[in-house]
């Protein structure tokens, strides 16, 4: 088991390095970062000054090496624009994005699990068709469109919820629904498919034959079997939500790392872009790792194979 974890960690570190090197070089491919940093209405001389000040005229490999050496000691540097320490900026913004991601996953699970199980209990039935419709709709509808519809309904017509900002928990309701709906279809389908498989299996037939009630069969035997893929998918989805909250944060004016990364990319704020990429990559890799471990706990067969 130890060697398995070491192997997994080594490949994780490699993944993260590749991702961060790619982001760094992409920032230079997109054009001279000095222009973005100097900003609109800056003169050619302003731009030249910025280029020299940050040393952008040197080879990208050397600049990346410098950044990496510092990052390894935990020094992410200062934002080119805000002049503040990148670590401080991330510390104040991560909780917003992370909280939103977790809330969205919980929202998605709260709908996907009961609905998926109920749909599987009677395939082709009314609930099943509704679930199918919901999952197609959730997948087809762009998040920003749903977000705008929510704003019109809950913010303008009914006036139940504040539209933008992050002052209170109410401010997170619409973003959670919008983002959660994005994760919903995958979870819904995996729950339904997994439950269907379990219901067709021998051990469920045995349980039924023993005279267990339908509810007990569903929740004690079938659902437990579904948990394994569900945990994996949820972890992957959470990673995707962290990275994918950029649009939602823009629309709802939430100052999380999504909004920050958008802003930082436009302004070529390299230290910020690099740090965010690194953090999201680390999260993604860690979540997959955690999912494997949780699976091992849930399923004795996986545990024994280690």
């Amino acid at each position: 088991m130890t060697s398995f974890i070491i192997k997994r960690l080594a490949s994780a570190v490699l993944t993260i390095l590749v991702v961060s090197a790619l982001t760094f070089s992409l920032a230079f491919l997109a054009g001279d970062p000095a222009i973005a940093i100097a900003g609109k209405d800056s003169s050619a001389a302003d731009i030249a000054r910025v280029r020299e000040y940050y040393g952008f005229d040197r080879p990208v490999v050397i600049q990346y090496g410098e950044w990496l050496a510092k990052a390894l000691t935990g020094d992410f540097g200062r934002s080119f624009h805000y002049q503040q320490s990148v670590a401080d900026m991330l510390a104040s913004r991560l909780p917003i994005t992370f909280g939103l991601g977790v809330a969205a996953i919980i929202f998605a699970l709260a709908i996907a699990v009961p609905l998926g199980v109920a749909a599987a209990a009677k395939p082709g039935g009314l609930i099943d068709r509704f679930a199918l419709g919901l999952s197609v709709l959730g997948q087809a509808m762009p998040t920003f469109w749903l977000a705008l519809l929510l704003v019109v309904l809950f913010g303008l017509t009914l006036r139940w919820l504040p539209i933008s900002g992050n002052a209170t928990w109410q401010h997170f309701v619409m973003p959670t629904i919008a983002l959660g709906t994005f994760a919903l279809p995958a979870l819904l389908r995996i729950t339904r498919a997994g439950t269907l498989d379990a219901l067709r299996s021998d051990y469920v037939r045995t349980a039924r034959a023993k005279g267990l009630g339908a509810g007990k069969v569903l929740f004690r035997h079938a659902l437990r079997n579904v948990m394994i893929p569900l945990v994996s998918i949820s972890a992957v989805q959470l990673g995707a939500l962290l990275a994918g909250s950029i649009v939602i944060e823009q629309i709802f004016a939430l100052q999380g790392i999504g909004a920050l990364s958008y802003d930082a990319t436009l302004r070529a704020d390299l230290p910020v872009v690099q740090a965010i990429t690194l953090i999201v990559a680390v999260f993604y890799v860690l979540l997959t790792l955690v999912a494997d471990i949780v699976n091992a706990i849930l399923d004795p067969r996986i545990r024994e194979s280690w």
């Binding site: 704003v151 913010g155 303008l156 006036r159 539209i163 933008s164 629309i251 004016a253 100052q255």
Partner: peptide, 16 residues
């Protein structure tokens, strides 16, 4: 003063 990047959101805030 609130930083609201999206013009559509600004409109919704204005109307509400």
């Amino acid at each position: 003063i609130r930083e609201i990047p999206d013009a559509q959101t600004q409109v919704a805030e204005l109307m509400s």
